[in-house]
Design a protein around this nucleic acid. Structure first.
Length: 117
DNA sequence: ATGATGATTGTTCGC
DNA sequence: GCGAACAATCATCAT
């Protein structure tokens, strides 16, 4: 039983790590993005506070089966976070095999096409 | 090995 | 653009 239940976020959090490997998203994050429209649809003109409550309320009533798809997304995102963390620790200089635009040490502002990765 | 902590994630809404 | 409820998370640190 964890003690700290849910302390309010102080507001801005100062990251400790230089690359802040951050973690994956949460199932709720996917759930909100997915149901947000549905909830709003069922609550025309609903306010932000209500939506959050409605979402959370249902989310908790839901069964693992309902959350399954969301958890799945969360899990998928988690993997992403793992990889990013690994890279953060590995200290691998993201290199671009493509000789298209060798790292540009000079911060030029050109927005031609950002269709990179 | 275990526990506790912190940091993070995304949405909506308004001004 | 930011903040704040809503919930999960879960990786890492510390002992």
């Amino acid at each position: 039983m964890p003690k700290a239940v849910a302390e309010k976020r102080g507001g801005g959090k100062a990251k400790k790590d230089p690359n802040a490997p951050k973690r994956g998203l949460s199932a709720f994050m996917f759930y909100s993005t997915a149901q947000r429209e549905n909830v709003k649809k069922n609550n025309p003109g609903i306010s932000f506070g209500e939506i959050g409550k409605q979402l959370g309320q249902q989310w908790r009533e839901m069964t693992a089966q309902e959350k399954a798809p969301y958890e799945k997304q969360a899990a998928a995102d988690k993997e992403r976070a793992e990889r990013e963390k690994k890279q953060y620790e590995g200290g691998v200089p993201a290199k671009k095999p493509t000789s298209k635009k060798a790292a540009a040490p000079v911060p030029e502002d050109d927005d031609d096409d950002e269709d990179d990765e």
